[in-house]
Amino acid sequence: MILFFGTRSGKQVSKPMNGVSCPHCSQTGTLTAHVQPNYFHLFWIPLFKIGTSRYAECSHCKRVYYKEEFSDEMERALSI
């Protein structure tokens, strides 16, 4: 019997971070947060979520901030 299993990314969700300024260029309202879950799947059917990738991108300076680099202001905007 052959089993096909592995991991695959889920649907990415983007959310504008209004009122949050970019730590690099100091522009306000240019950050967009992207959240993408990762799933374990068996026979291409997602069974359970194994993690989530989160990052924010500034549309002005194109700087990308990963979850470890989020400021307190960015964390508060995502939790709302």
Rank of each mutant, 00 (worst) to 15 (best):
M1G: 15
M1D: 13
M1Y: 12
I2Y: 12
L3H: 13
L3M: 14
F4D: 11
F4T: 14
F4E: 14
T7W: 12
R8W: 04
S9F: 12
G10E: 01
G10D: 00
K11G: 03
V13L: 07
S14M: 13
S14I: 07
K15C: 08
K15E: 06
K15R: 15
M17C: 11
N18G: 10
N18V: 10
N18L: 13
V20A: 04
V20D: 01
S21C: 07
S21Q: 10
C22H: 00
C22A: 10
P23Q: 07
C25G: 05
S26Q: 14
S26P: 02
Q27C: 13
Q27S: 15
G29L: 08
G29C: 09
T30L: 01
T32A: 09
H34M: 07
H34W: 05
H34T: 05
V35R: 05
V35S: 07
Q36M: 12
P37N: 05
N38W: 03
N38P: 03
N38F: 03
Y39K: 08
F40G: 07
H41K: 08
L42A: 06
I45K: 11
I45C: 09
F48L: 10
F48Y: 15
F48A: 06
K49T: 06
K49S: 09
K49Y: 03
I50S: 10
G51W: 01
S53M: 09
S53F: 04
R54N: 04
Y55E: 09
C58N: 01
C58E: 00
C61M: 08
C61Q: 04
C61H: 04
K62W: 06
K62D: 03
V64I: 14
V64D: 00
V64T: 06
Y65W: 05
K67T: 07
K67C: 04
K67D: 04
E68N: 13
E68Q: 14
E69F: 07
S71Y: 01
S71M: 04
D72M: 09
D72S: 15
D72Q: 13
D72Y: 05
E73V: 10
M74I: 14
R76N: 14
A77W: 03
S79F: 06
S79K: 14
